[in-house]
Design a protein around this nucleic acid. Structure first.
Lengths: 139, 139
DNA sequence: TCTCTAATTGCAAGTCTATTGCAATTACCA
DNA sequence: TGGTAATTGCAATAGACTTGCAATTAGAGA
């Protein structure tokens, strides 16, 4: 598992350091996308001393080579990150009251993307699709 | 047209001031969503002297009563605002190279929302759907 | 029209997320 | 083992957005 991650990093001229492993470990153990500062706090709790700046830089590298996905939820004011490597493309829903984030294991946008490309003459490379509402507990 | 806007404001305990009219005017004349600072610059160009803080506060009020929509595009790092009043619900596509933003006059999410509500037991109140890619000129 | 109150605004300062410069450290290939 | 490039921490900075507060303004009622 980590061997592929290592290869992906090296292919982009990067190294799989202790720091990066620690960041990936936290992300792999968390079932929802984390912000940089949440990630930093969890590292501290695990007695892993990594500067917040390094967390940001690590997330940027991991995102740029596609191991990690950057997610922006409506009006949250901060980016979140989750492991992408080995996971299906998916989206999220967030509770407007308690902030709980759940995965949506679907993406209904393939046909729509083709339609948009025809209509707008854009080439579509990415899309963002996030829902918000009230989770069962907060209703 | 402005009469309804006025009523909406008053219903929420607000006033339609010269300042708010100026902000709405700029938004109405612009065919794509503006950030607070872009809006501020346009006001200055029009010799309308409104503090940037007031622009932020105005946009918050207009958004909260539903006259204006707040849009967040992937990795832009700033919110954008556009007139919602009298317009169809729609989404956007943004060029990753030149930043051009185009409207997509469609929303494919009604059925999907019903499905998500059934699957997750969330009540869905909002969704964000934005695309990015390359516009015809930048391909 | 005048007055009074609450909403609005500008200015200064502050908060929070994220980035950059630079020197010290570390990884790893030859 | 040495040399070089990547990585990291620390300090400073940038940028979006918010808050406190005093001054101004709108407009409802007298």
């Amino acid at each position: 598992m980590h061997s592929t991650i290592n290869e992906d990093l090296r292919a982009a001229g990067h190294r799989l350091t202790r720091t990066r492993r620690a960041v990936l470990d936290v992300l792999e153990r968390t079932k929802y996308p984390l912000s940089a500062s949440e990630l930093y706090q969890r590292l501290q709790r695990n007695k892993v001393s990594i500067d917040l700046v390094t967390v940001y830089r690590t997330l940027t590298v991991l995102r740029d080579i596609g191991l990690v996905a950057q997610i922006e939820l409506h009006q949250e004011g901060q980016a979140r990150f989750e492991i992408q490597h080995g996971r299906e493309h998916h989206h999220h829903i967030r509770c407007q009251t308690c902030g709980k984030i759940a995965d949506l294991l679907l993406c209904p946008l393939k046909k729509i993307t083709a339609f948009i490309e025809k209509e707008t003459k854009f080439i579509v490379n990415e899309h963002t699709l996030e829902f918000s509402g009230l989770c069962p507990k907060c209703q």
